[in-house]
Design a binder for these strands. Structure first.
Lengths: 144, 144
DNA sequence: TATTGTTATACTCTATAACTATA
DNA sequence: TATAGTTATAGAGTATAACAATA
């Protein structure tokens, strides 16, 4: 693996520091005060994937299986996901989101955007364009 | 405040989700196993600012004052920062980084880059260019 | 009175280790 | 034997509330 150029190194440092700080601020901007960031993220994943086993969710969210057990149980208790037996493998379970979760995600979009808009609204056109172009790349990076 | 366009909304959602997941992965990539992400971030801030009071650090890192008290105490115990009395105000203190901290940051850069390089190395040229262009914007966003 | 920083305490999230059930 | 999920437990990091010292 070759060394990064100096500019790349600076970009990497900026990225790391910014991601850590932004995440701390976003944690405080819970749409529903009773939902943790990971719970929100799991619901988002389910909204995209439709359904997943607890193990798949743990891998996708980069969390250990016991943590996902707890998260799924909390979400089920709040009526936001349903757990069903796996059709082929009786060890596994299938997690799906409820209509209530879908409505919650929809309702929350306004509030979530309101916060991020206060931040991105202070960027100029060029800066926002750069960030917007990078958003899918960041998402890919988080999934690698 | 005007509504965001649909594309902006998608970018905002991608941003939020990616930042939360990346932060979880970065947390595991501690250069020094004994330094938490926030401790690292504080050292980075001090490297840029030179000196700051605990209150200033708490605001910059978006952490409550008691948390910063603890973080600064831990860093001092590790010989990475020095605490001096404030020249004008005897309630406040001044935090500065030690030479040891500077050396540690320098030494750690290689390892930190190695991890991020494994991720960004899987991006193509175009994706990496987009991410690199957005890095300073993300940093600005975290500071707003 | 207001502000800076600290102490005491509790909570949330996550991890590791050990276990159960199924493949 | 290996894998999916769970239970029990511990640890890290942060917050809130109450307090001390100084402005």
């Amino acid at each position: 693996m070759p060394d990064l150029s100096q500019g790349d190194e600076a970009a990497v440092n900026a990225l790391r520091s910014a991601v850590m700080r932004l995440s701390r601020r976003l944690k405080h901007q819970r749409v529903d005060e009773s939902l943790s960031p990971t719970e929100m993220s799991v619901l988002g994943t389910l909204a995209r994937c439709g359904r997943a086993t607890p193990g798949e969710l743990a891998r996708k969210e980069h969390v250990q299986p016991p943590s996902m057990t707890r998260i799924v149980a909390l979400l089920e208790g709040k009526g936001l996901v349903r757990l069903e037996p796996h059709p082929d493998d009786r060890r596994q379970k299938v997690v799906t989101q409820t209509e209530q979760a879908e409505a919650m995600l929809e309702e929350s979009r306004r509030r979530r955007n309101a916060f991020l808009a206060t931040l991105t609204g202070q960027l100029d056109e060029d800066e926002w364009a750069k960030l917007r172009a990078a958003a899918p790349v960041l998402e890919k990076l988080a999934h690698i």
